[in-house]
Write a protein that binds this DNA or RNA. Structure first.
Length: 206
DNA sequence: CGCCAGGGCCATA
DNA sequence: TATGGCCATGGC
């Protein structure tokens, strides 16, 4: 199985606020470009700093990630939202998952995937993130015919223990695995887990 | 040169 | 609801 093959690949890198920003910057963008952007903050990527920066200054920093007009505005709005909770992870965690998810989705530039990534990797809500690698991975699994976001998310979520740490580590595993073996072209060439349904733990049906 | 990368928005039918 | 154009950079 993936876990024994790769070992524990950990979590999304960075502290909580960096993770939010990274989740926005990585939209349809290579992670290497995101790293270039993050380096422009030199150990000082805090909501207090972003609060002070103008949109133009923010664009200058995130420039290498592309789509900078939309992403800069999105980061600003996300930061305004986060201020309501005192920039506190713990405070957000006291709120219902669905409420936070709706609030994130209401921010322009944050769709289902980015919202779920923030919910999981920043606030540790048990939300399964569906990204391009998960979709590609799912093409080989006996998932329902419908491959839309909600259906895929329900499929993975329903077949795993409802545990945020597990969701996160499993997602990272598939992601890193995909980067290694399952590039778009040629699709999944050399993948050692072809046609293998590889859930580390199944939820008991009730 | 073109394709691709851990999307999302909007217009159109 | 489901496509398609658009946004933009850097690696290859």
């Amino acid at each position: 199985m993936l876990l024994t093959y790769y070992g524990d690949l950990g979590w999304w890198p960075g502290h909580s606020y960096e993770i939010m920003i990274g989740a926005i910057l990585v939209q349809n963008t290579a992670w290497s470009n995101v790293e270039r952007s993050l380096e422009n903050f030199a150990e000082d990527l805090t909501p207090q700093l972003v609060e002070k920066l103008t949109i133009e200054e923010l664009i200058t920093r995130i420039y290498p990630s592309g789509f900078y007009h939309a992403k800069a505005a999105c980061i600003k709005n996300l930061t305004v939202w986060y201020k309501q909770y005192g920039y506190s992870v713990q405070t957000v965690q006291t709120q219902p998952l669905s409420k936070i998810r709706d609030e994130l989705l209401a921010i322009r530039g944050i769709g289902a995937e980015t919202a779920d990534a923030i919910l999981l990797y920043v606030f540790y809500f048990p939300t399964f993130v569906i990204d391009a690698y998960i979709k590609r991975f799912a093409e080989r699994l006996p998932v329902p015919a419908a491959r839309d976001y909600k259906t895929l998310q329900a499929y993975f979520s329903d077949n795993l223990e409802q545990d945020a740490i597990l969701f996160g580590k499993y997602h990272i595993l598939i992601l890193e695995h995909g980067k290694k073996h399952c590039k778009k072209k040629p699709r999944c060439e050399g993948c050692p887990f072809m046609n293998e349904c590889d859930f580390p733990k199944r939820q008991k049906s009730s």
